[in-house]
Amino acid sequence: MIEIEGITKRYDATTVVDDVSMIIEPRTIAVIVGTSGSGKTTLLRMINRLVEPTSGIIKLDGADNRSVPGYELRRSIGYAIQGHGLFPHRTVAQNIATVPVLLGWDKDRIKARVDELMTLYQLDPREFGPRYPHELSGGQQQRVGVARALAAEPNVLLMDEPFGALDPIIRTKAQEDLLAIQKRFGTTIILVTHDMEEAVHMGDKIAVMDAGKLVQYAKPAEILANPASSFVETLVGASERPFRLLSLGRVRDAVENGAAEGEAIPGDASQRDALAELLWSGRPALPVKGADGKPLGRVTVDGLVKRAARPA
């Protein structure tokens, strides 16, 4: 659990982060959204003390983050940044091993952990381990960057626009990978982005920041349904709201009894994808299948349209 209590950061006369308080539950993903200059990155960097706050307290699992030296704190917290920041003079394996080496793990343990993470990220340790970062593609570099952040099994992972430099296709894949890994390790993730789409997709909770202030901190559905201010509303994008709301739900939660013609859609797909498929194919209903391939029922245009309406 991360408790942020009354955190303020001032540079001379300008207040970058203004009295922000929020609690991030363990094993969840909190996404901080805002325009550039909203103070979201500064807030993130105060958690691992790359920036020292002017006032306020941040507690990690109940302990003040100033109770240990900054560098020790940072070794216990994963940190992934835009443009990955890999060390160009070190191999992929050495990059991933950075924090374990700093912590003085023994060689076998480091090697086992590096191999585990590389396999998890679909990078063959024997093929990619000895390579240098500039020999990898952008997507691979990004994966190595996240693998490095996760190497010392941190409970908390801070990510500053980690997918910012990726093209849309690799980006979606990277987001899915991160969600899968978060489930697997149960890491608490705080992710900074300016992309509301990403925030709705990734976040268990979304914190919207504007001019250093925390404007709203709530579940994605709540942010979409009841934006706290006109700023949040603009950020969400009025014309996108119904679709974002649908993207939060899974098809299996919208299943109705009955049958339909044509190719079945998996129950795990988002309701937004189902609606898109319905509209595109011009059909009124689609069959739904479970993970085991058995039919679950059907989804209808009418049913989905009702779900896209503003919640009462």
């Binding site: 790359l50 020790e72 940072r74 070794r75 940044i81 990955h84 490095r148």
Partner: peptide, 18 residues
Amino acid sequence: LPANVVEAARGAGMTGWQ
């Protein structure tokens, strides 16, 4: 030096000397 590499080094918990 590339800024994000130095930032990553700090973020990984290296001391000034490291």
